Amino acid sequence: MTRTLFITGASSGIGAATARAAVARGWSVGLMARSADKLDALATELGAAALALPGDATDPAAQEEAVARTVENFGALHAAFANAGRGLERPGTEAGDPEDWRGMVDLNVMGVLFTARAALPHLRRTKGHLVLTGSAAGRTHIKGSIYSATKWFVHGYGGNMSEEMRDWGGRCTVISPGMVDTPFFDSPKPDKIRPEDVADAVLYALEQNPRAELREIHIMPTG
């Protein structure tokens, strides 16, 4: 039976790499992101196994609709990857922009909650898997970092969801990468982790024996 994975932040970086890796392993994928052009191009590349779902992950109704369309198209949902996230234009508390903070918190915190809320009723039916993109920044203290604090939330929430989902046979994994060479950064980081490395970790977690739950995979560059 083909399994289905819903991904937010799917148009580039970790999300796109995970979509490609999942389809290569026989999964179907529902792809959500704001960039409709990039999303359509990726779905065309991946063929019938992919469904483009343009939308804003900070909009709970949009996430509900995207998950529902994924299930309608592929028949069931076996995993959801809350991957969409962003940083700040101006880091720090005194120098930062409160509206910029709000936008980041809406995506990095509320967006994760909206993915979980939309996916959980469907995952319960399949004893499915929730995957969250955390960060090495969510495992340590960084001077004044508000971004890091949002990732601390993801790590804490992931552990809490593991405890909840185990009641009905579900699993939750936090993927915790260090610096990844993605469009998240303004300049290339060729000596750092590649999005494909993170995608491999996501699929590794998803394809474990159902009796085993990898609650966190922490990936750091060797350089």
Rank of each mutant, 00 (worst) to 15 (best):
V105W: 05
R166C: 02
A61T: 15
M1C: 04
A79I: 11
F185I: 00
E94L: 15
A119C: 05
L31Y: 10
L203C: 06
E164G: 03
R117C: 00
L120D: 02
R139S: 09
S135C: 09
A205E: 04
V23T: 14
F185P: 00
A68C: 09
L39M: 11
L107Q: 10
L214A: 06
R125G: 00
G26T: 09
V29C: 06
Q208K: 13
G156Y: 03
T58A: 15
S35D: 14
W101V: 02
T8E: 08
L113R: 05
T115M: 05
L206M: 05
V198Q: 07
S148Y: 03
L5N: 08
A80Q: 14
P60V: 07
E216N: 01
V180H: 07
V154G: 11
D181Y: 05
G134E: 05
T18I: 07
I219M: 14
P54N: 14
R117K: 11
G92I: 10
S12L: 09
D167F: 09
D167I: 04
Y147C: 03
F114V: 01
W152R: 06
D56T: 13
T2C: 02
F184Q: 00
R3Y: 01
M110Y: 14
A10Y: 03
L206C: 03
A212N: 07
L214C: 02
T93V: 14
V112I: 09
G87Y: 12
M179S: 08
F184N: 00
Q208F: 07
E99F: 00
A50D: 14
G30L: 10
Y157R: 04
P91T: 05
L203M: 13
T140M: 13
N108I: 02
P54V: 13
N73E: 13
H155L: 12
N209K: 07
L39F: 12
S135P: 04
R69Y: 04
W101F: 15
S176F: 00
E216K: 00
H141D: 12
G13Q: 01
R211K: 10
A149C: 12
R124Y: 04
C172N: 11
D186Q: 08
E164T: 08
P54D: 12
G26M: 11
R194F: 03
F185M: 01
D200F: 06
A61D: 15
V174M: 04
D59M: 15
A61W: 09
T115F: 06
L77N: 10
L214Y: 03
Q63C: 15
P91S: 07
